[in-house]
């Protein structure tokens, strides 16, 4: 009764009304959404293809290349499958050393970041009024919008021989000659904590914020002192936040490349630099780099997974 009368009037039909009446559009929609099964496949096929192709593909391809004896391929020569790239890793200490240094370094930095940010998160979640919490949190967020390189550079200026810290120390008369902070494990640590602290802070804050204050109060009521309350109540109940914060920081800090290059020195070469070198030099070094990357990925994920299992609270009755 309505549609036909409307068209005959020559009045303007709204956009959506015109769209649905286009034969091409009708055909397309019927083709794509004709049945629940088609709708499912439309959504599923692209999603599955994307994650397999773009998310899993690069990792699998890297694994594949790590077993080749040459890549990128040279004309007229078929690459052969080999384990040589992995053997190479175990044969030389200039590879093994940075590998373990990176893991140890990342673990230490994770622990340090946890110790530094826990009081900050605790202060925000427990000692600040609700309305002010967001403002104070925002204040911490601002520096993290600034990129990795810019922040690394800022640390270089802070710690250089003519940097602010040395200037301050000399002005206070504590030292005569500048302390060489730069290109050491110290400068690298300061830089990486500077980059990753947020990834620890946010999970901790949200875990602490969810925790009702009444738990601590109940413990106090039962006679627990401040330290006991923290150790027996707060810490165990924020384990999930600690676990996810530590996992994130560990994985992220083991993956930095530019920061170690800029802030570190020869004694602090991390595995990322070792791996990257294979992709800069000319020649058939990609497979070795791929093999090393695979080793590192596997180890990093295994450590993170094991840590998560250990620290995360076990869910009672939850299957899997």
């Amino acid at each position: 009764m309505m549609g036909d009368a409307a068209v005959s009037r020559g009045d303007r039909v709204p956009f959506w009304g015109r769209t649905v009446s286009l034969p091409f559009y009708k055909g397309l929609v019927t083709f794509l959404f004709g049945s629940p099964r088609r709708q499912f496949w439309l959504l599923a096929s692209f999603s599955i293809i994307w994650v397999l192709f773009a998310h899993l593909g690069p990792i699998l391809q890297m694994l594949h290349v790590s077993f080749l004896d040459g890549y990128p391929p040279t004309a007229g020569r078929e690459p052969v499958m080999t384990l040589a790239n992995y053997e190479r890793f175990f044969s030389e200490s200039i590879f093994i050393l940075p590998f373990f240094r990176t893991l140890a370094f990342a673990s230490l930095l994770t622990a340090a970041t946890l110790v530094i940010t826990y009081p900050v998160a605790y202060f925000l979640a427990r000692h600040v009024r609700r309305q002010r919490q967001l403002a104070l949190l925002l204040l911490l967020l601002i520096p993290f919008w600034v990129g990795e390189i810019v922040r690394t550079y800022a640390i270089m200026i802070l710690l250089g021989n003519n940097g602010a810290v040395n200037l301050l120390l000399r002005w206070l008369g504590l030292v005569d000659r500048p302390i060489p902070f730069m290109y050491t494990g110290f400068s690298l640590s300061i830089g990486i904590i500077y980059l990753t602290a947020l990834y620890m802070l946010l999970p901790l804050y949200s875990a602490l914020e969810k925790l009702p204050a009444s738990y601590s109060e109940a413990a106090a009521d039962l006679g627990a002192g401040g330290w006991t309350r923290f150790r027996r109540i707060t810490l165990p109940l924020t384990r999930e936040g600690i676990a996810s914060g530590c996992t994130l920081v560990f994985l992220i800090s083991s993956g930095y490349y530019a920061t170690p290059v800029l802030l570190g020195g020869p004694a602090t070469t991390v595995f990322a630099e070792t791996v990257a070198r294979f992709f800069h030099v000319a020649g058939d070094e990609w497979p070795t780099g791929a093999a090393f990357s695979c080793l590192m990925l596997l180890t990093a994920l295994a450590i993170a997974g094991a840590f998560n299992r250990l620290v995360s609270p076990r869910r009672v009755g939850a299957g899997g």
Binding site: G3, A5, A6, V7, R9, D11, V13, P14, W16, G17
Partner: peptide, 15 residues
């Protein structure tokens, strides 16, 4: 619902 039924803008208003 009227917009999707190819109804003219004026008729939609009236309805």
């Amino acid at each position: 619902g009227l917009e999707l039924r190819r109804m003219a803008a004026g008729d939609i208003d009236a309805r």
